[in-house]
């Protein structure tokens, strides 16, 4: 079935902005989407990937090495690949619950081993997700030993397999998109921290929005091609803006005032470590770049702060105030102080 166009998704602006930000700058890290079921989380990730431009790769390369990256392409463990270049779509790989370690990191190619006695490595899901998205539904229910692998690979960008005389290293850089419902189990803090951005999605409560969703879904199901055509222009505009933003990103400047603001927000919230502030900074820059600006504004920071910080607050399990409200309060105080000083 055709993919629902990203541009046709109704509402859920936070989720769309956060996903767009990591599409512009994957070094921001993953996106954690938590909240209600049936809000189109998986649809949004697939739609975003489908809306991104295809990537250059070597034909037959099972590791999706980037030809533009000589170190990566040179060290590619896939001896079989042809030298010819090709274009591949941005992958979205599902990491299912209960998945075995072998399937995640890769394992011996059974077919070859049995048929010819050859010892060959069969890449796993991590290789398939390289340069794309790794989607984990119900990430809070993921088994601990799989989480450990993800943490390790996400930190290094390299998957190292050393077992049974198999010795393989391959690049594995991907954006983790995790969805889950915090009511069904809390996420390990280390994993939480790996997610650059976090957004909360809610089932739309107002009827006009719900009617609009019904109508678009109906139109899509009746005539997927026609529906896609309706949103083609909007989709292309989004793609062009992402591409332009990627090019512009290295030139986006952050003034000392902005850096001060970021630090002040981090301090007001007492977030642990610099990661939150760094992510806030990076996300702000993608917002500026997406708008075609070379300077980061207060508004960019204000927009990025909740995405970057909500999930990083030191958790007081007995504080009734939600994290979002605490971020909001901190932002208000920092920006007010800023306005007073000006």
């Amino acid at each position: 079935m055709a993919t629902f166009p990203f541009a046709a998704l109704v509402g859920q602006d936070d989720m769309k902005r956060a996903l767009t930000a990591v599409a512009i700058d994957p070094t921001i890290g993953g996106v954690l989407i938590f909240g209600d079921r049936g809000t189109g989380k998986s649809t949004a990730v697939r739609a975003l990937a489908a809306s991104l431009p295809t990537m250059a790769a070597f034909e037959g390369c099972r590791y999706r090495c980037d030809p533009a990256n000589p170190t990566e392409a040179g060290a590619c463990p896939d001896k079989e690949r042809a030298g010819k270049k090709t274009k591949i779509p941005v992958p979205v790989v599902d990491l299912p619950l209960g998945v075995t370690e072998d399937r995640v990191v890769g394992a011996l190619d059974l077919e070859r081993a049995l048929a010819t006695g050859e010892k060959l490595f069969e890449p796993g899901l991590l290789a398939r997700a390289h340069r794309g998205f790794l989607y984990i539904d119900e990430v809070n229910l993921l088994e601990d030993h799989i989480v450990d692998i993800l943490l390790d690979v996400a930190a290094s960008g390299i998957n190292v397999v050393e077992r049974e005389g198999l010795s393989v290293r391959h690049p594995a850089r991907f954006v983790i998109v995790g969805s889950g419902n915090p009511e069904e189990g809390e996420l390990r803090p280390q994993l939480l921290d790996r997610f650059g951005l976090a957004v909360e999605v809610k089932t739309p409560a107002d009827i006009p929005t719900r009617v609009e969703i019904i109508k678009r879904r109906d139109a899509f199901e009746r005539d997927p091609e026609g529906f896609f055509e309706t949103y083609r222009k909007a989709g292309e505009r989004h793609r062009r803006r992402i591409l332009a933003a990627r090019r512009l990103l290295p030139e986006v400047e952050t003034s000392d005032e902005i850096l001060g603001l970021v630090a002040a927000i981090g301090m007001a919230l007492g977030t642990d470590g610099a990661r939150g502030e760094l992510t806030m900074m990076r996300a702000s820059r993608t917002f500026a770049a997406y708008d075609g600006r070379k300077t980061v504004t207060d508004a960019d920071v204000r927009g990025a702060a909740p995405f970057a910080l909500t999930h990083r607050l030191r958790r007081d399990p007995l504080d009734e105030t939600g994290s979002a409200a605490r971020v909001d309060r901190a932002l208000k105080s920092v920006f007010e102080a800023d306005a007073d000083a000006a």
Binding site: R37, G40, T203, P204, R210, I213, I214, R217, D218
Partner: peptide, 29 residues
Amino acid sequence: LPDAIAADLAAAAVALGVSSMRTTLQVVA
């Protein structure tokens, strides 16, 4: 699917406390 019917069903789902969008799309289908 007349718009009015879509609106009726959306409203009915909310009124009955069925918040899931998936169920709403299913009742329409």
